[in-house]
């Protein structure tokens, strides 16, 4: 394989990889909206869950505390709230896809 072929191969590989990732990215909020959502989570969810997400009146929202919980359940908890607890529904402030994005970030590494 010549050097140029190798580079072309890499190019193909990377576009293929991008293609694979794209469906997930399609659901991602725009950068400005991401910033708003991060602010919402840290400041307003933070009144109960802590600005550092270490928990307060509400449970901690760290990757290790959420790891064993089903993603759909977490998304529903944000979107619809959890009756019988102080957790309110946040659906008037975000779409379900945005709630899913928040859960994804909480379960990996939540932006500052």
């Amino acid at each position: 394989m010549s050097a140029s072929n190798f580079v072309f191969g890499l190019f193909l590989l990377s576009t293929a990889a991008l293609g694979l990732v794209r469906p997930a990215i399609a659901g991602e909020p725009a950068p400005a909206r991401q910033k708003e959502l991060v602010h919402l989570v840290r400041q307003d969810c933070g009144s109960c869950h802590g600005m550092t997400l270490n928990g307060g009146l509400g449970p901690a929202l760290l990757p290790e505390t959420l790891r064993d919980k089903p993603v759909e359940g977490l998304v529903a908890t944000i979107y619809y709230g959890r009756p019988g607890t102080p957790m309110p529904p946040w659906k008037q402030f975000m779409s379900e896809a945005e709630a899913a994005w928040i859960v994804d970030k909480l379960m990996t590494k939540f932006p500052q």
Binding site: D44, S47, C48, L57, G81, P86, P88
Partner: peptide
């Protein structure tokens, strides 16, 4: 509240 449905509380 007289049994009326509560509005969501976003901060204690």
């Amino acid at each position: 509240g007289r049994g009326q449905e509560k509005l969501p509380v976003f901060k204690m």
